[in-house]
């Protein structure tokens, strides 16, 4: 079984966001990059599938220098090899262009399964897995909390509003990982040492045959401006004994905020 995992390098979730001077992105100065949290579940699932069924795992990441540490992190956890897709043409791509790049890198690799996090921190789009499945012409299951594979068949459980759906289908397929799918392992010292001997292959727009076909300029969803959220009006702490405060709260929710 050959498994691809796609990971994104994102600012640590503790990061306080500031807007860049051109207002077209956030200010990345001093930001620590980590593997996007949902992608950790995808990496772990790839490792578990390999442990059970044998085969090969390859991690992909699209981006600049910030990807190196993220790819090394996946290698240290046990992924066999890594592909870094790095090209200035691919800076700040929209979801569809990102999916096109990943599809080009994955399509002829003989993969049975592609795993991604259900959403990447930052754009918060939840789009790339489904787009990638369409571009590869494979079936998909997103928001997966349980995955079983037998031969070329799969059974995946996904979280929906107030229920779990069981999806059955055939491989090859794309899956996006939701929290709850597994408990990601942490890389040990041995893993970190082993990762140093593993290769990170670098791909460009040219080598993927995408020169002039995918670029920042050609994106169809254009990020025009990044804004800070509207400031919340100053709130207040209520006063008096607990009974008085509770009465006052209910009164305010009814007569001032009109939400009760």
């Amino acid at each position: 079984m050959k498994i691809a995992v796609c990971t994104k390098a994102v600012p640590d979730t503790e990061t306080r966001i500031a807007i860049a001077a051109d207002k077209k992105n956030i200010d990345f100065a001093g930001v620590r990059f980590v593997t996007s949290p949902f992608d950790e579940f995808a990496v772990e699932e790839a490792l578990k599938l390999k442990e059970k069924h044998g085969g090969e795992t390859v991690v992909f990441s699209l981006g600049g220098a910030e990807c190196t540490a993220v790819l090394q992190d996946s290698l240290a956890r046990g992924i066999d090899s890594a592909v870094h897709i790095n090209d200035p043409d691919f800076a700040n791509l929209d979801t569809l262009s990102t999916a096109k790049v990943l599809a080009a890198a994955i399509k002829d690799g003989g993969y049975d399964i592609v795993l991604l996090g259900q959403q990447g921190v930052g754009g918060d789009n939840s789009q790339v897995p489904s787009m990638l499945a369409e571009l590869l012409d494979w079936p998909q299951t997103t928001m997966v909390v349980k995955l079983e594979v037998e031969g070329n068949q799969f059974k995946a459980e996904r979280e929906i509003e107030g229920a779990h759906e069981v999806v059955t289908g055939s491989l090859p397929a794309v899956f996006s990982a939701q929290k709850g799918l597994n408990e990601p392992r942490y890389p040990g010292i041995k893993g970190v040492m082993a990762a140093k001997r593993k290769t990170i292959e670098v791909k460009s727009a040219e080598s993927l045959g995408l020169k002039g076909k995918v670029s920042t300029e050609l994106c169809k969803a254009k990020l025009k401006e990044v804004l800070m959220p509207p400031e919340r009006p100053q709130g207040r702490k209520l006063e008096g004994d607990i009974d008085t405060q509770v009465k006052e709260l209910v009164n305010l929710l009814r007569t001032e905020s009109h939400v009760l």
């Binding site: 929209d94 979801t95 569809l96 999916a99 918060d124 789009n125 939840s126 789009q127 790339v128 897995p129 489904s130 787009m131 499945a133 369409e134 571009l135 998909q140 997103t142 928001m143 996904r158 979280e159 929906i160 509003e161 169809k220 969803a221």
Partner: peptide, 23 residues
């Protein structure tokens, strides 16, 4: 932006080579 639309709308967008913005 429900779990159903999040699943298939991006797929439909890719089918049509179209822009897609969610949530």
């Amino acid at each position: 932006n429900t779990s159903m639309a999040k699943d298939f709308i991006p797929r439909a967008a890719a089918k049509m080579d179209a822009a897609c913005v969610t949530d």
